Amino acid sequence: MKLIQIAALVAPAQAALRFGCSTLSIQRLDPLVEPGKLPSAHVHQIVGGNAFNATMDKDPSDVASCTTCTFSEDFSNYWTAAMFFKHENGSYKRVPIMQNTALPNGINGGMTVYYTQQDFNTNGNQKITAFPKGFRMTVGSPTTNTVEDAKKHPGLRFVCLQDKATRFPESPDFPPKACKGGIMTVHHFPSCWDGKNVDSPNHQDHMYNTAKEAFSPAGACPASHPVRMAQVAYETLWDTTQFNNMWPKDGSNPFFLSYNDNKGYGTHADYLFGWKGDSLQKAMDSKCMFQACENGKPLQSQSVAAMNKCAVKSSVNENLDGWLKALPGMSM
């Protein structure tokens, strides 16, 4: 028994990262699912390195000059579908994004990004392998169209916010009524890798999920996907409150994800690795947690002003602001 206790004490305690990324761009680009297509089918909110483009055929860490994320060594890109409000008159308006209260003040929209291996409160003690160069993946699918199928993705959820600190209950679809503090979308990626492929035709088969719910210890990785990687997760807070007094009289949900989904079953997210050198592996091998990983311990971090300054110009010439006759790319 004493030997087991000693072994537990000396076991590696891997890092857990939580950090903010301000918005890099909001436009119709999707270099994973629709590489090279201008414009892509629907609007995304993108954060991360400024190498983001329609093809992403080069390592972002080699070509990016800035990032909208807290860690200045992270030139990865993270993106999700944008959210729109549909007025009873048939017009649409894009829902603005709020910053998470767990992050420094002043972040321009964006999202909270996590790299965890245990749960929300502890590091855990497994060896975590950083993603290799060229790695990319998606989670969820816009073609998911039933609540039964949506429930099969435990890491893809919505939260009706009472305030920015609300985290439960989680739902596989949009809240059925106006939310006092807005809506949060949650996207958790699988963390077991096949150890061979940095991508797969559907951008998902090279990964395998063993977690039964978000921010909970995942089960052992299967032989087909034996390599434990960090579980990447996004939290995006949408400021739906300005539309609460416009809720449709018939009680129907007025919010749509940008691919014309007002159920939320098809919520999805994309990830493209772009950390500089071995910086992510150094973090995963450290004992830090959340903000304690900043300021060179072991990751280099930057100010909110520097995060907000980084941006890319839209590659698509279309208006996404104000009231629109139709969802961009979804002509009636």
Rank of each mutant, 00 (worst) to 15 (best):
Q204F: 00
P222T: 10
E170F: 03
V147A: 14
G134F: 03
T210D: 03
P190Q: 10
F215S: 06
V159T: 14
P201K: 05
V198F: 03
F189P: 07
T236G: 01
S252T: 13
S224P: 04
L257H: 14
Q162L: 12
A214I: 00
K152H: 03
H188I: 00
V198Y: 03
T146K: 00
R228V: 12
M246L: 15
L237Y: 14
S216C: 04
G251I: 11
Q162R: 07
Q126P: 08
N202C: 11
V232K: 00
A230E: 04
A130L: 13
G134I: 02
D163K: 08
P248W: 11
E213L: 02
K151V: 11
P248I: 11
T241E: 12
E148K: 09
K180P: 10
G195C: 07
H225N: 13
D149I: 08
T210V: 12
F131D: 04
D205L: 05
P176Q: 13
F256G: 01
R167A: 14
K133N: 13
S224I: 09
C221K: 01
N253Q: 06
V139R: 00
K196L: 08
P142Y: 07
P154N: 06
P222M: 13
P172H: 11
M137S: 09
I183T: 03
G219K: 05
D173H: 11
M229I: 02
T185L: 11
K196T: 10
M246T: 11
A150P: 04
V227C: 09
P154S: 04
A220G: 08
W238L: 12
F243K: 03
N209D: 10
S216Q: 09
T185N: 05
T129H: 05
Q126V: 13
F189S: 09
A230I: 05
G124N: 07
T129D: 02
V159M: 03
T129K: 07
M246G: 04
S252A: 15
M184G: 03
A218K: 06
F215T: 05
P248C: 09
G251F: 13
R167G: 07
G140K: 01
N125F: 04
K180W: 08
P190C: 08
K164F: 08
T236S: 06
C192F: 06
D199V: 14
Q204A: 11
D199C: 12
K249I: 13
V232F: 01
K180L: 06
R136C: 08
D250H: 07
H206E: 06
T144V: 15
A178C: 07
C221Q: 03
S224W: 04
G195K: 13
F135Q: 00
C221T: 05
S141N: 15
K127Y: 04
P248G: 08
H206C: 05
F243N: 05
